[in-house]
Design a protein around this nucleic acid. Structure first.
Length: 395
DNA sequence: AATTCCTACAACCGCTTCTCG
DNA sequence: CCGAGAAGCGGTTGTAGGAAT
């Protein structure tokens, strides 16, 4: 663009920060706040550009930053969220209290990406590499697209669920379900809840899908413009102007899942995993992870499990909704519990469903256990999403 | 002990998005 | 509504420190 980088000015220091500089910056911000970052360096007596000061503050000096090794829960959360969100580090960071996007990004690039790669999982698509390489059959040609589609789908479903909640709140302001949420606040006057911010983007998503979904009707399941169970059809997902035509045309109206395979798969072949799948963080655990755990999810399954979530998980999540929003940190714990429990169960029960690293065939033929696993997995994701802060940039 | 290689992470760069006059 | 500046974001680079040779 036309503007020159702020650090082009001669005399401005670059490179690593010295303790003295840190001290100056810290002292100034503690006393005055950062105010305008561009003006800050001069006021604070620093030979740095404002951008550098901002980065140093946000990524290192901020008092609410947690440093040091990532916990197992954090690692798992990063992986799950990356599967959902891709490289949207800031969005991921909002779900990892006291971690910065930069730190998460670095950790992903230096640790997690490599571990997934070692496990034979494409860190971009979160699919097994051998499947990703199957370009000739056209299946993996759209792997990345499918992943993104799934992300959008997940987001859209989440919004639909919120709409369900809102609808229920509207129809029953006293809240027979006994929950309120930050994203669907019920004020003391009984006024309608404020729509969550995510609806704009979800509007966009749904508009793309609406025509085909309307054509397919409620049989299309939860995705697209499917009618929300129990709402009498007056609460379709919002619509949009987003251009997603390539994918939309690539996917038949009968559902993404028809043409998709798992887009997150941790495949393995052990049937002897007892208890938690990972003891502590480290390479060894991850090797075990790769051998013992199978997360196999197809979009169609996701859709189904999301439908299931309407009736089960959403209500459960809703029960604790307010609590989870008040204590944003608890969502990680909750999710991790789910992940560990589900994964443990999965590893025990998944001998049939996920034993084949090919993913596709075995995944589809897993039977009810496999199906349950997917439901659990995606319900856990759904819960994760549900319990995210209402102003989260996730959507 | 010296050198090279590798890893981890802080910091930078450039683009996009937001905000405000 | 438009444009400029500020802030945010993600990709990439630079460098310090440890491991290997």
């Amino acid at each position: 663009m036309g503007r020159s980088p702020c650090c082009d000015k001669v005399g401005l220091k670059k490179g690593p920060w010295t303790p003295e500089e840190d001290q100056k910056l810290l002292a100034y911000i503690e006393e005055h706040g950062h105010g305008s970052w561009r003006a800050l360096p001069v006021k604070a007596g620093l030979q740095r550009c404002g951008k550098s000061c901002r980065l140093r503050w946000t990524n290192y000096l901020r008092p609410d930053i947690k440093r040091g090794k990532f916990s197992l829960q954090e690692e798992q959360t990063i992986i799950q969220l990356h599967a959902l969100l891709g490289n949207r580090w800031s969005a991921i960071a909002t779900h990892l209290p006291k971690r910065t996007d930069n730190e998460i990004k670095n950790y992903w690039n230096t640790h997690l990406k490599k571990r997934l790669a070692k496990m034979g999982i494409d860190p971009v698509t979160h699919k097994p590499k051998n499947e990703t390489l199957l370009s000739s059959d056209g299946q993996s040609k759209n792997a990345a697209n499918l992943s993104h589609m799934a992300q959008w789908e997940s987001a859209r479903l989440e919004a639909e669920e919120r709409l369900v909640r809102q609808s229920k709140l509207r129809s029953n302001p006293l809240g027979s379900l006994g929950f309120t949420s930050a994203s669907t606040p019920v004020n003391k006057t009984g006024a309608p809840p404020v729509p969550p911010r995510c609806l704009d983007i979800l509007k966009a998503w749904n508009d793309v899908w609406k025509p085909s979904d309307q054509a397919s009707g409620s049989g299309g399941g939860a995705h697209g413009g499917a009618l929300i169970p129990g709402l009498g059809g007056d609460l379709e997902s919002p619509t949009s102007t987003l251009s997603y035509s390539e994918n939309a045309t690539a996917m038949p109206a009968t559902g993404i899942g028809e043409s998709s395979t798992a887009f997150i798969e941790f495949v393995g072949n052990s049937s002897s995993c007892e208890g938690p799948i990972m003891k502590e963080e480290g390479e060894e655990e991850w090797k075990g992870f790769g051998n013992n755990v199978s997360f196999t999810s197809g979009l169609n399954d996701m859709t189904t499990c999301m439908e299931s979530a309407w009736t089960h998980e959403s209500l459960k999540a809703g029960t604790n909704y307010e609590h989870e929003h008040v204590h944003s940190g608890t969502f990680v714990e909750k999710f991790t519990d789910l992940l560990l429990n589900n994964s443990g169960d999965r590893s025990l029960s998944d001998g049939s469903g996920g034993s084949d690293s090919g993913g596709d065939g075995s995944g589809d033929g897993g039977g009810s256990d496999y199906y349950e696993d997917n439901k659990n997995y995606w319900n856990s994701i759904l819960n994760l999403v549900n319990s995210s802060p209402p102003d989260s940039p996730m959507f």
